[in-house]
Simulated assay, not measured.
Amino acid sequence: MSEMMDKPSIPVGISACLLGHKVRYDGGHKRSKYCLNVLSDCFDFVPLCPEVSIGLTTPREPIRLVGSAESPRVVGVKDPSFDVTDKLTAYADEVTASHDQLCGYVLMKGSPSCGMERVKVYHENGLPNEAGRGAYAAQLMKNNPALPVEEEGRLNDPVLRENFITRVFAYYSWKQEVLTNPSLHEVIQFHSRHKYQVMAHNYEAYKQIGKYLAEEAASLPLEDVLDSYILQLMTALTKRANRRTHTNALMHIMGYLKRDIDSETKQDLLEAIDEYRTEKVNLVVPLALLKHYLKRHGSDYIRSQAYLNPYPHELGLRNYI
């Protein structure tokens, strides 16, 4: 993966145990080969362990979530009077303030502090309650609703993996292209480059965001537009694209070639897109063909679409979806 070393090194938070740091309650780690061996070539990981950061030792008494699934307390398994909920929440606030450069976050699955979802919550009597979210993760995500967040275990799913990495690169681009010199013009230009990316994930959001920028944004304070737009965009991209929605985006992009390609080429493209739609090939096949003809015949506008190159091709993510 050395070819990616000249690509942007994007700051992404990560549960320290996933990088092999021995910070877990039992003195061990949960080293992630994918994060270390693949994603570290394009992500500049910032390892964080909320439990160690609030002063807990390694090894230590295990903790768990107790109470309501919506707002559980984080207490000791053996000593329920040992409560670190407020410290974990305060640390999430501290990280939010001190690490505003982060463009994503990879969390440890099932952790009472870092778990993103489906973390075990117990009633006071010890019986299982509905699942919830780790206290640190919950506060971090509340503070940063647009921040791309995913659990390491879910990155084994090709669709979820591609979705997360797409969001991280989009968020990074937003910070680099818009927030360095913010203006409504820059927001509109950014959205123009990401239109088909949004379409592939959420067609309704594609229409709603376009309407917002065309009809409302100009009358609103710029700071409100910046906050609203990026939250709308990242929320839209959180919805997983599928073969039907990708096919729709591919067909729209192909429309920009209709006047410049012959009927035989058009048929080749249509067949490649249909083979993808019917699960005979993966997304990389029609995209490679489409990009070949766009390079020769496409306008600057359509070639600039983030959907065509949302992240370094060396990651090979579209080979599996």
Score class of each variant (00 low, 15 high):
residue 1 M to Q: 13
residue 2 S to R: 15
residue 9 S to P: 06
residue 10 I to F: 09
residue 16 A to T: 02
residue 19 L to S: 03
residue 19 L to G: 02
residue 22 K to L: 12
residue 25 Y to A: 09
residue 26 D to A: 12
residue 27 G to H: 08
residue 29 H to M: 07
residue 30 K to S: 06
residue 32 S to A: 04
residue 37 N to G: 08
residue 49 C to T: 08
residue 49 C to G: 10
residue 53 S to K: 07
residue 58 T to F: 03
residue 59 P to S: 09
residue 61 E to R: 12
residue 62 P to C: 15
residue 64 R to T: 13
residue 65 L to G: 04
residue 66 V to F: 03
residue 73 R to M: 12
residue 75 V to Q: 04
residue 76 G to P: 09
residue 80 P to F: 07
residue 81 S to G: 11
residue 86 D to P: 02
residue 86 D to K: 11
residue 86 D to F: 09
residue 88 L to C: 03
residue 89 T to Q: 01
residue 89 T to N: 00
residue 92 A to E: 02
residue 93 D to H: 04
residue 94 E to C: 06
residue 94 E to I: 03
residue 95 V to T: 02
residue 97 A to R: 08
residue 97 A to G: 04
residue 98 S to E: 07
residue 100 D to Y: 10
residue 105 Y to I: 04
residue 108 M to N: 08
residue 113 S to W: 03
residue 114 C to F: 02
residue 114 C to K: 05
residue 124 E to T: 15
residue 127 L to S: 15
residue 133 R to V: 13
residue 137 A to D: 00
residue 138 A to G: 00
residue 139 Q to R: 06
residue 140 L to P: 00
residue 142 K to Q: 11
residue 143 N to K: 00
residue 145 P to F: 09
residue 151 E to S: 07
residue 158 P to A: 10
residue 159 V to F: 09
residue 161 R to W: 03
residue 164 F to L: 07
residue 165 I to G: 01
residue 166 T to G: 03
residue 167 R to M: 10
residue 167 R to K: 13
residue 169 F to H: 09
residue 173 S to Y: 11
residue 175 K to E: 14
residue 177 E to M: 15
residue 177 E to R: 14
residue 179 L to K: 12
residue 190 F to C: 02
residue 192 S to H: 11
residue 194 H to P: 02
residue 196 Y to S: 01
residue 197 Q to V: 10
residue 199 M to R: 05
residue 199 M to S: 01
residue 200 A to C: 10
residue 204 E to W: 07
residue 206 Y to I: 05
residue 207 K to I: 10
residue 209 I to A: 06
residue 210 G to E: 05
residue 215 E to D: 15
residue 220 L to W: 11
residue 221 P to N: 07
residue 221 P to F: 07
residue 222 L to I: 01
residue 224 D to P: 02
residue 224 D to N: 08
residue 224 D to E: 12
residue 228 S to K: 10
residue 231 L to Q: 12
residue 235 T to H: 10
residue 235 T to P: 03
residue 239 K to G: 12
residue 240 R to P: 08
residue 244 R to T: 14
residue 245 T to S: 14
residue 248 N to E: 13
residue 251 M to W: 10
residue 252 H to P: 01
residue 252 H to I: 13
residue 256 Y to S: 12
residue 260 D to Y: 15
residue 260 D to A: 13
residue 261 I to C: 11
residue 262 D to S: 12
residue 269 L to F: 08
residue 273 I to R: 02
residue 278 T to A: 11
residue 282 N to H: 15
residue 283 L to N: 00
residue 291 K to D: 06
residue 292 H to L: 15
residue 292 H to Q: 15
residue 298 G to N: 05
residue 303 R to Y: 04
residue 304 S to Y: 04
residue 304 S to L: 02
residue 306 A to F: 09
residue 312 P to I: 04
residue 315 L to I: 07
residue 320 Y to R: 15
residue 321 I to A: 13
residue 321 I to T: 14
